[in-house]
């Protein structure tokens, strides 16, 4: 079964076309890394998949239209427009997607919330004010929140921008452990920590410049087409390393 199917997907903003004629079929489950320069339309593509921007073409999420398919997606936005005036605790934040109606918090909700906070090592902060956490800690809590609804699809837009190396490594481990149950779409500028666990790489610059496995897609020619500048790629039989991959941030 395909978790995501895009046919001739185009998104226009007032200023012009952001992504054009995207065709893509992603099997469930699989791990897909999306790369592209600033303004390439990566965030736009993710938002279109969730039905958050008007689009032309066809989108199917687990066989359904984006609006119907929303609930199977866990989304971590790029720059969270989090409002830290709101005095919510870590617990409140993680529970938000589960209990958005009047019936309130049930035991199983709390159990699930604790479970996902344990996964990101933030369970000790259960009753702490969210706005008093560090940026990386907030990011971990928001990461946990994307998991709390048990989504089939995880959509993560530059999730490691505020995290230290240790947190980043442990979050990647966590993602790795979902490989056989979820489709993961992750936008990232530095692909190096993901080369081992990603199934596919999507190179995006308004259009799809390439889609395939790391060994077929990550090479100097493609990097130059994508970024418009020479980016050395070191390849060994097992793996590859994009030199200065982290400098594109």
């Amino acid at each position: 079964m395909n978790s995501i199917e895009l046919k001739n997907l185009t998104v226009r903003y007032r200023e012009g076309i952001a992504i054009e004629n995207i065709n893509l079929e992603i099997q469930h489950p699989s791990f897909v890394t999306i790369m592209g320069p600033n303004g390439a339309g990566k965030t736009t593509l993710l938002k279109a998949i969730m039905g958050m921007v008007p689009y032309e073409g066809e989108i199917k999420i687990m066989g359904k239209n984006p609006k119907e398919g929303k609930r199977v997606i866990g989304y971590l936005p790029q720059r969270e427009r989090i409002n830290t005036n709101v005095p919510v605790t870590v617990k409140d934040v993680v529970l938000m997607p589960l209990v958005s109606n009047v019936r309130g918090v049930k035991k199983e909700h709390v159990k699930k919330a604790k479970e996902v906070l344990k996964m990101v090592n933030m369970i000790d902060y259960w009753n702490r004010r969210f706005d008093a956490l560090s940026g990386g800690q907030q990011q971990r809590v928001l990461f946990a929140r994307t998991l709390v609804t048990d989504p089939d699809i995880l959509i993560l837009d530059e999730p490691f921008s505020a995290t230290d190396v240790k947190t980043k490594t442990s979050l990647i481990h966590l993602l790795h452990s979902f490989k056989n149950e979820k489709t993961i779409l992750i936008v990232i500028h530095d692909i190096n920590p993901l080369v081992e666990c990603t199934d596919y790489v999507l190179l995006l610059k308004k259009k799809v410049l390439g889609f395939g496995m790391v060994k077929d897609v990550i090479n100097e020619e493609n990097m130059e087409r994508l970024y418009g500048t020479r980016v050395p790629v070191i390849r060994t039989p097992e793996t590859c390393y994009v030199v200065g991959g982290d400098r594109h941030v």
Binding site: M50, M52, I82, V86, V93, N101
Partner: peptide, 20 residues
């Protein structure tokens, strides 16, 4: 009745929208 939804929306509109 609408406390939780309004809270979600003022705290984090983008995630609220993604959650329907």
């Amino acid at each position: 009745i609408f406390y939780r939804k309004m809270l979600y929306v003022i705290f984090d509109p983008e995630s609220a929208e993604a959650n329907g």
